[in-house]
Nucleic acid binder design. Structure first.
Lengths: 190, 190
DNA sequence: GTCTATAGTAGGATAGAC
DNA sequence: GTCTATCCTACTATAGAC
């Protein structure tokens, strides 16, 4: 987390460095608070777009827009970097987990809506899928930092995967029956 | 990257701190070298298991095993943390990107093998999919640090998704035809 | 090549004036 | 609540003995 010292944060905010400790106690506490509040406002700003999503591919498009906006604001992968910092046993784990939860809740709501009439929804672990999508997005943000072209390629590939899921929705009862037996077998692995 | 200072690394290695600068110049250069070499050896150690994979779910199982082993060695999300550190314009970007590439190459080979006879392979962007899987795994590693239960749930959900992909492989020409038109349409979005 | 010693620096945190 | 001034710690990096 180099670059996120009390001094740099204070000067960026145009205030004195001592104020950070007066208001937040420690730098980590400031980062924790900032993580949750900025995520909260960002989620709120995207609520409309999430609500307008009607297909999985559109959900990915929202992800693209979100990433582009973060890039423009210089906030790229802020959450990802805080998650990385939280790995070494810090108290950042709680707040960053909470921030991630804000995103997963939003994704979960969209998935519930999209897959309501899908044969897949009969077995789908929607909360788990939402978490997987959030985690994948975090990973893509980090990927972007070291290989932008590769990250973009990965996103496009996910669009193809989304098409595949949508396909099952429209294959009718035959596919539903096959899928049902497959998933039942999958829960009792070899 | 607190906890990865020249001092801690040196004492962990049982040597003197000055040696790090003698051999590597800077700490970042050491981390860059360590990132590539440990990833290389880790990939080599898993080559057999990757080669034995016959289904997408088995690929996910390899991922689970990999994660468990990293956990046991105390190396959890090393690559993820280095990717995060590389975000802030460091020279770590190159080596970490290279390390990630080692994983994606392995995944890509598996996917090529698994999807060779699949109708999906006709259109699938295998390299892109491999990158997406690698990125998702990185994200899951970070997720694990702040919410182990959620990360595990996400992995299980991905298994369901893998089942779905396998399903399409066995639906025959009808599904193939529908899928083909869908993907063609998807490349020219609304 | 490996050690000791040390210079120089950045950052966390507090005390106290205003 | 906000500032200045300051202490202390941990770190990078180098010089030089062995």
């Amino acid at each position: 987390m180099t670059g996120a010292s009390a001094r740099t944060i204070a000067t960026a905010a145009g205030v004195n460095q001592a104020l950070i400790f007066y208001h937040y106690g420690t730098v980590d506490d400031l980062l924790a608070a900032a993580c949750v509040t900025t995520t909260r406002s960002r989620v709120a700003r995207y609520a409309d777009r999430f609500a307008a999503v009607t297909t999985l591919r559109e959900l990915l498009d929202v992800g693209r827009a979100l990433h582009a906006e973060e890039l423009a604001e210089g906030n790229v992968s802020m959450l990802a970097q805080l998650l990385a910092a939280a790995q070494t046993g810090h108290k950042l784990a709680g707040p960053t987990g909470e921030a991630l939860q804000l995103w997963t809740a939003e994704i979960e709501a969209v998935l519930h809506r999209l897959l309501a009439d899908s044969p897949f929804s009969e077995f789908a672990d929607i909360p788990g899928l939402a978490r997987a999508i959030a985690a994948a997005f975090v990973g893509l943000e980090l990927y972007e930092g070291v290989d932008p072209a590769g990250a973009d390629q990965a996103l496009s590939a996910l669009s193809q995967l989304a098409v595949l899921v949508e396909l099952v929705d429209e294959l009718g009862p035959l596919a539903t029956r096959v899928l049902r037996s497959r998933l039942k077998r999958a829960t009792r692995p070899t």
